[in-house]
Simulated scan of single mutants.
Amino acid sequence: MESITKNRQTPATLRAMVERAYGAEQVPTGEPDTWLEELGHGWFNVAYRILLRDGRAVVVKIAPPRGVPVMPAERGAMRIELDALALIAARTDVPVPQVDHADLSHELVDADYFFMPFVDAENFGIITDGLGTERRAAYNEALGAANRELNSIRGSWFGPLAGPGDPSWRVVFTGLVEDVLAAGEARSVDIGRDYDEIRKVVALHADVLDEVIEPRFVEWDLWDSNVMVRDGRIVTIIDHERALYGDPLMEAGFAGTYLSDFGDPTAFMRGYGQEQLTPREQTRRGLYCLHLVVIMAIETVYRGHTTPTQYDWARKQIDTMMRLLTEP
């Protein structure tokens, strides 16, 4: 996926980054195509697979360039991911990447970056269409169980992992919505609806947010494309940069309970241990879906997408969500 947020680096710079992380004796030699490969399926950060001199394969993930505007939830995203990885490793048994080296100094490149071991596994999102129904359901059920374990981590506030936060989920979530709408207005993004219409619909249903009283760790971006699988099991979960303390119903696995375009959530919910949602939980999920598809429309402008596929799809979903949240 192409995006102007991808902070690509030269082989010479990548060699310098390897030396800082692993030592001069591990810096690869030879032509770049013998040791360097860009991993292209990500949408935001750039990631490279690098073969060290001793034969180990590692991945370096690099945040966007300093001068590229990003969406509000993506500001400081790599530091959020590092915090999330440390928290998950300390508090759960959910498999996540090990951080070999993180550099936040901006001395070698104009952004944060970190190295981790390369995981020899398949991306669930890439292979899912080729799987049989039973295997796909088994992976989704395992994902539901893993997601529930992640959500078992309790926070002391709603909002960013590192704080500051707020004791009210309504305050935090409506603030997230306003941040996104303001970002869209700043770039004059046409989302097919007046921005104040979105604000009114969120305000109309905001009382359901008051039912969320315990902050929980929420991945928020745990789609199948962020799950690496092998031999019938989840090997690791990647891309944790949107994590926050919030309502577990924000998780991607629940999106299909309100909007069918996000897929059948049955196996995920079975693994999670929650068969269905109450009407008021459904309304909360509806607000989260609306928030999500508005993000998906606006971010195409910030990322400089060259094809309209995601934008056109998101515009249609905004219309659908507005109808569902306003009609009896």
Rank of each mutant, 00 (worst) to 15 (best):
F44T: 09
N45I: 14
N45D: 15
I50R: 08
R53Q: 15
D54W: 08
D54N: 13
G55F: 03
R56H: 01
R56N: 01
R56L: 01
A57M: 11
V59Q: 12
V59A: 06
V60N: 01
I62S: 04
P64D: 08
P65N: 05
R66D: 09
A73N: 07
E74F: 15
G76F: 12
G76R: 11
G76C: 14
A77G: 14
A77T: 09
R79S: 15
I80G: 02
E81S: 11
E81N: 14
A86V: 13
I88N: 08
A89C: 12
A90D: 14
A90I: 10
R91F: 08
T92R: 12
V94S: 11
P95C: 07
V96W: 04
Q98M: 09
Q98R: 15
V99G: 04
V99K: 10
D100R: 10
D103Q: 13
S105N: 09
V109K: 07
D112L: 02
D112S: 07
D112C: 03
Y113L: 05
F115N: 01
F115W: 08
F124S: 06
I127V: 14
T128W: 12
T128P: 00
D129F: 01
G130S: 04
G130M: 03
G132R: 09
R136K: 02
R136I: 00
E141P: 05
A142G: 05
A145T: 10
N147L: 00
L150A: 00
L150C: 00
L150S: 00
S152Q: 08
I153C: 07
